[in-house]
Design a protein around this nucleic acid. Structure first.
Length: 208
DNA sequence: GTTGGGGGGCACTTTACCTCA
DNA sequence: GATGAGGTAAAGTGCCCCCCA
């Protein structure tokens, strides 16, 4: 949710509340004179629009800490010539906007990942079809050690990470052969940034 | 250990206002 | 210029959780 020039321009608007006094406690105008509660005889308007400077200071404060204790809230309200409730509301809405943005990023990433998995699935399906077409006997897997065919019973798949594991080789040793399962490289990048529990759990299972 | 009240955060919604076709 | 749709941000509401007496 990028801030468009149009939305910025809105911040410069003045507040008008015809026929009304500022709500208690008296709502003071800012030092810039952009937040005057004025009357012009029209229908009542009661929405505050923050000035550029107020928004800037709030953003700056938000960068330092995403929540405020009562003392910080009071001080910021005093500095901005707003009511503490307005500062509180701004922080609540700001947190919600941050969360929404993060969710959108995750959604985008998951869409891309889904696309790549779909493509990979198609490739593997084609490969299976080709192998089936060539089939002359039971499926065999070649040992990486002896280049001899392995019995199918030695092949297992880890249910969590979906890697194919060959067992019973070299006197009980276990050799893991990573199959062509999609590697969530971007997942690692993204989850390290956003800390998504679901993505982190995927990563941990990949370490199986 | 239990309980009730107060405060804060969050999700969801409403409202006022803006932009644009 | 008027108008309606859609978007955005401020504010309202209700719920939950935590802390403390």
């Amino acid at each position: 949710m990028a801030v468009s020039p149009s939305s910025i321009s809105r911040l410069e608007l003045t507040i008008s509340m015809p026929g009304f006094s500022p709500p208690p406690p008296p709502f003071p105008s800012s030092g810039t004179g952009e937040e005057e509660w004025i009357t012009n005889g029209g229908p009542p308007r009661k929405k505050l629009r923050l000035s550029k400077e107020q928004s800037r200071l709030l953003e700056e404060s938000f960068r330092q800490h995403h929540t405020l204790n009562p003392r910080q809230k009071e001080a910021l309200a005093l500095q901005l010539k707003l009511r503490p409730r307005q500062v509180e509301v701004w922080f609540q809405n700001r947190r919600a906007r941050s969360k929404l943005k993060q969710t959108e990023m995750e959604c985008e990433y998951l869409k891309r990942w889904f696309g790549s998995l779909t493509e990979q699935n198609r490739r593997l399906q084609r490969e299976v079809e080709e192998l089936r077409a060539l089939k002359v006997g039971p499926p065999t897997v070649m040992s990486p050690h002896s280049c001899e065919p392995l019995p199918a019973s030695t092949l297992t798949m880890c249910p969590s990470c979906e890697r194919v594991t060959t067992t019973g080789l070299d006197k009980g040793s276990t050799k893991t052969t990573t199959t062509a399962v999609a590697t969530p490289t971007t997942a690692a990048t993204l989850s390290s940034k956003v800390g998504t529990p679901a993505l982190q759990s995927r990563q941990s299972s990949a370490a199986c």
